[in-house]
Structures are given as C-alpha cells and as structure tokens.
Design a protein around this nucleic acid. Sequence first.
RNA 1: GCGGGCGUCGCCAAGUGGUUAAGGCAGCGGCUUGUGGCGCCGCUAUUCGGGGGUUCGAAUCCCCUCGCUCGCCCCA
Length: 423
Amino acid sequence: MTNLKNLRGMVDLLPEQSQCWQKVESIALEHFSRAGLKEIRTPIIEQTELFARGIGENTDVVGKEMYNFNDRGGRSCTLRPEGTASVARSIVQHGLLNNGPQRLWYKGPMFRYERPQAGRQRQFHQIGVEFVGLASVMSDAEVISIAWDFLKDVGLNDLTLEINSLGSNEDRSVFKKELQDWLNKRFDLLDEDSQKRINFNPLRILDSKINSTKELLSEAPSLKDFLSNKSKTRFDYLQEMLAKLKIPFRINNNLVRGLDYYSHTAFEITSDQLGSQATVCGGGRYDGLISELGGTQTPSIGWAIGMERLIILAGDKLLQTKSPDVYVIHRGEKAEQLALEITCQLRSSNLTIELDYSGSSFSKQFKRADKSKAKWALVIGEDEASKGHLLMKKLRDKQHDEDSKEYIFSKVDLDQLIKKLID
RNA sequence: GCGGGCGUCGCCAAGUGGUUAAGGCAGCGGCUUGUGGCGCCGCUAUUCGGGGGUUCGAAUCCCCUCGCUCGCCCCA
C-alpha cells in the first residue's frame, strides 16, 4: 500500500483501458474528418472570468464546481469545466470567423469539483463538436446526426435522443416573467431549492426532480406556448429533418440544460444503462455566447460527449487485446545482442513484437510466449547465435494434434520469411 | 454540500474476540540447465486503509479520520 495516491475524483487510465479510448478516438476522428471538421486545442486553464461570463454566474458549474486558484501573478485562473467557452474565446480572439463559419471538434480533460459517482469524476474527458457561424436549422440537424452516427458506430444501442426548443432570447424573457409570476403565487408549495431559483434561474425549476414540485408544474405555463412563430417553425423543421435522417427522437419540453448560453435547440442523448448519470451527450444552440465574449452576434451550435460514460456504455465491445505477432526467446550472451537486433529490425516491418528479458530457461520463456498469445516464437540460443541462424517456431493455439512447424533460416532471409509466414 | 453501503496480498476473496490470517487467479522458482499450452511441488500479507481506545487477548467491539462506492443536487 503506497501512501501516495491520486487525488479524489482523478482517475488513472490503465493500459488495458487506454486501448478502448484509442479505438473510440480513432472512430471519432474518422467521423469528424469525413464531416469536414477541424480540430481545435485550447488551454486547460483560462481566466476565471471567461467561464463566469460564458457559462453564467448563476449556474451550478460556475457557482460551486470550478477549480479556481490565483497564479503567482495574482490572476484568477480556472481549470476549464467544459470546452465550449474556451473554443468560443479562441475563435473571437483569433478572428477565425473572418474565414467563414467554423466547423470544429475538440477533446480533452475537463474539471468539475463534485462528489464522484458512477459516470462522474472530477477530472473527466469530453469530446465535442462546435459549429460556429451557422444559423440554418440544417446545421442543428447535421450536428445532431454527427453525434448520433458516431455513437452508433462505437456500438452503442438503446440510446434516446431528446430534443427541445428554448426559443429565442426574446421568447424566453417573456416566458421567464410569466413563469416567475406564476411561481411566486405558489411560492409556499415549492421545494426549497426551487424557491431559491425563482429569481435568478426560474427555467431550471421546470427540470425539478422533486415530486411535489413536478406535480405542481404540470399546471404551469409551458415554454412551448411562448415560442414565437418563427421559433416554432424552426423547431418543427428540425423535427422534420431528423425524421428524414431516420434519427428517432423524443420531445422533452422540460429539457432546459444547466448552462446559460443555450437558445433554440437543446438536446441530450441518454442511456438507461448509466445509472443516474444518464446523459452521454448533451448540447444545443448558443447564439448568444460569441457576442457575450466580445465577438459579433454569431449563431452557433455544438455538443459534448462524456468519454468515460461512452466507454462505460461501449463495455467490452471495444476490448481488443493486441497479442504480439512474434515473441522473441533467447538464451546466452551471444544470443542477447542478436535478439535485440532482430527485435528492432522486425519492428520496422510493422509487426508487433515482444522480447523476453528474463534470461530464464527456455521452458519458462516458452510458457510466457504461449501466454502472450503470440503467433510465432523466434528462438535464439547459443547455437543459433554462433551459427548466425534463427529458429522460427509456430505456436499453436489449443490444437494438440497439429504438428508444430519450425523454420531455420539465416538472418538475411528474415524479412522474406516473415512476409511469407505472417499475413 | 447532504444521505446509504464498503475498505483483509497486484486482483477476487474466507474469517464476526483466542495460539502461526483460508483459498483461488496472477507472479516467481522447480519437476524439465535448449523447447510452450496440461499436470504436480514449493515460495509470495509479522498483518487486515490510517490513528486512538476497550480487553489478558482485536481483522473482528467503540470513537475519530482517510479513501472507495452508490444515490441526491447538477452535469458529460
């Protein structure tokens, strides 16, 4: 038991798991590049103000979950709790929109100081997509379909796409007043959290999980009745397009999402296999964010997928233990050099190869070779070393009857032999 | 921040007050000094997350603490 341990909520990604991650990331990269997206990488640390303004002072994320600290120059810094604000900042700062709309993706660690539980860590990883400078409903549909196709391709089934429209900012502010009035009249019937939220974040009350509040809210004014015709048409059109793309969805009028910057389309992809943290992908339109950060009014939409949750759902579908093609066995001083030389030579021919360093008996080394599930054992002993010969032996898997095949050859024939034996 | 459950070897675990803390997997060594998959034999926790206390005696009881885990809030 070591006394040095990782911090709470910070998780090591062990070799077995990292293979899954690589697989997922490569699938993602393929999807993104086919969709014409480019990657953007932004720093993990930003000015605290970026998130306070971008995400919203009154959100839980900003209010109680951020890792803040002052650097040596006394600047207030924050470990990014999400990716969108940083991407938006970068776009504004570098004037990327002068080159037209930006279709971007990113991935990396995010930090939120919360109590860890299934599907939730303090350092977690998101992979996300942002379409910045595009207003068309088509972009909403395309962005959603990129997420959907990607998740499907990773092998996830039983996913549910929920969508909602939060309307324009104007729609929402009218509704907000109406809702506040309605709620204030019933103040005493609300749970404590909801009472606190009336003034600064009434929309979130709609999302309450408290049963009594839920019941009360069934009578409350609904945002969908406050959508302007334009907003409604927009939402209808999105549904039409999703149907055309054969992406099944469900309308959830209570889907509000916790970050302030969303407007119009909001969506979530959930799974019932994740425990209580059911959301694997969340996103929406954020037409106000870029201007909030000092840019010009720029319509944008994006989403983020939680890698850890995705990996949980993918389960062992992605587990693919790579076994070596060749396991190099050697014994004796002369053999040592030759073994290393050959090992490195084989690597350059694109093979997975493992060199035994134990120096123990051939018997032991063969046992290990077998355990590694290698296809071939390359044997170099004193004899081979002194004669400049190599012995390649086929390792059988579980077939007792088959005779083992051995090939003796000289060093210079190695590449040719390999080509012949391994495909 | 608030609740519930749990912490015995790298992993899975038995043990619930009494002399040396089962077992399995993995690891290492041997049977077999140059040939594997099977088998057999041996080795691997002075110690039960940490710290106090109760007791003649504690992994087992009590207190504190740390950590893990599940849920609430919220989010990916």
